[in-house]
Design a protein around this nucleic acid. Sequence first.
DNA 1: CTGAAAGCGCTTACAG
DNA 2: CTGAAAGCGCTTACAG
Lengths: 342, 342
Amino acid sequence: MSRKRSASPTLGDVAELAGVSLATASKALNARGEVAAGTRRRVLKAAEELGFQHNALARGLTSGTTRMVGLITDELGGRFAIPILLGVENALGDEQMSVLLCDARGDAIRRRHYISTLVARQVDALIILGDRNDVRPSLSADIPVPVAYVYAESDSPDDLSILADDEGGARLAAEHLVSLGRRRIGHITGEETYRAARDRAAGMAAVLEEHGLSPAGGGALYGAWSQRWGHQAAGVLLSAEPGLDAVFCGSDQIATGVVEGLRDLGRRVPDDVAVVGYDNWEVFAAECRPPLTTVDLNLQHLGATAVRHLFGALNGEQASGVVRQPGRLVIRESTGPAARPH
Amino acid sequence: MSRKRSASPTLGDVAELAGVSLATASKALNARGEVAAGTRRRVLKAAEELGFQHNALARGLTSGTTRMVGLITDELGGRFAIPILLGVENALGDEQMSVLLCDARGDAIRRRHYISTLVARQVDALIILGDRNDVRPSLSADIPVPVAYVYAESDSPDDLSILADDEGGARLAAEHLVSLGRRRIGHITGEETYRAARDRAAGMAAVLEEHGLSPAGGGALYGAWSQRWGHQAAGVLLSAEPGLDAVFCGSDQIATGVVEGLRDLGRRVPDDVAVVGYDNWEVFAAECRPPLTTVDLNLQHLGATAVRHLFGALNGEQASGVVRQPGRLVIRESTGPAARPH
DNA sequence: CTGAAAGCGCTTACAG
DNA sequence: CTGAAAGCGCTTACAG
């Protein structure tokens, strides 16, 4: 398999075979219009015959655009990077663009290094993906191409940040529970150091207040982003609030633990207690017994939105500020109509 | 943020500032040795001052190497692509190389298209990632650079395939259970259409036979790669084999369902029944109650191995055939010492 | 040790 | 409509 890179046919070869000049061959292949139909046909045929492919390097050098976008992630292994990356890749594919991927592994030095590597590679634009939704220092200073910050927010108002609406997502969940007639609603979530956790708690608290309700257990229970914590916290919440009739969870993993914990304590889901998750992570949400009603942040769409804005910027449109993209509620059985009317 | 790509300094600018020729500047920066120390210093200083970065396009055009590797995945969203990708990215980063990522989404046309795009972009090598470990038709015919097939096997012996040793991984699990004194060992796994499922079942069956044991329930129970199936199959297996004392599962997801199913039927894990998973997918394996003993296929290492072989090929080493990389057993509480001696 | 020149493979004014 | 020429930013023999 270690064939040497065989001399691939060049535009010169095509021109020769077609009996035209380099310039004409180039114009014909690029459909620049100013070529006779017959000539064009001959060139196309020659290219076809030789299996000609433009050398992207040479093309980039002359045209000034590489049709490559650099994507820097913080933590590819994390849960958020992949769906966003997928959305980016999809959107770029539609435009015949490619993504050059770098994983900074949460290291600032490495991030700077990758940025300059990508710039040296002449990417047309850059996407900087965060693994949590906190605000972070802008990195745009030395970047001569458009940049989009996705998921994590840049602290500079001159930058473009594309964010998921965590507070709004939480509101959807809470409104849903309230509309189902639930009144004693608790919130079990992950680490308080995450803005995601705080935003979701805030969204939920706001809805409860609007409806004149107070949070079951006195407020959000912060802990870890794990099933184990959910399982444990379910017990804690239940002793604090025996009349508990709903729990909104900060993640589907937590929700899975909560559902098990409630079951172990003899509560039926959703009959006694309705449960809502967050993330719509299929392997948890769909496989939970019962399957979870949850909030889908539409991360894939987040990536696509970033690409769209970047294209805008490349076309000279102004691109800065914060775009906050709404999530949606996915309703499954864990909030099925309550058995007990209120 | 939508600054135009400002005229980045070129090598010419550096040469001018340093008062030397283009050629000398190039040699100085590339440490080609044949430059006076003082000159070299001046050039370096000038480069530093201007914030000079080589234009990778121009460099690639003249040097014939881009230091980019194309990576084509089948299904980025799948469970296997990410760890492997991470391993590749890591290994490449050490060599100052970048990865150009394309997701073919399991579409053959799209795969072909991406291959030619990547070749046109002059990648130095290509990695083709499969999302299941089946054998697939070689794609190397039109690829003028070294190619490594990872996770899925190419059907051509001239190609290089880097695979996980699924049968060996299953043997580790089965040997572990037998060594613990378990004798009535069942196997619950995913879809039989997956070679992964068949290989693992075969590895387990071989070990049982070597020890003169026959499989609990009469043989592998094939189903789906889900907790739900695990939960259900646990019941099936238990009625077929009431004396069941161990289950080897085809995935951690399945194992999670099995553990729950056994608990629902009044069996204690590991006291009554030991359970082994597969994948070492942390969010399941570590969060299961009890945490799962499982097989880690070392996927990240698979990616690194592919990169190493590819570098070998770039240096003219012969690179073809199948490399099968062993997994390892991760022991957790789900196989803790049996309470009942046998 | 240094530099002028050719060349990598393309595109794009500019003449004809 | 067609083509000769310059140029993109670099590297690398080759002379000096």
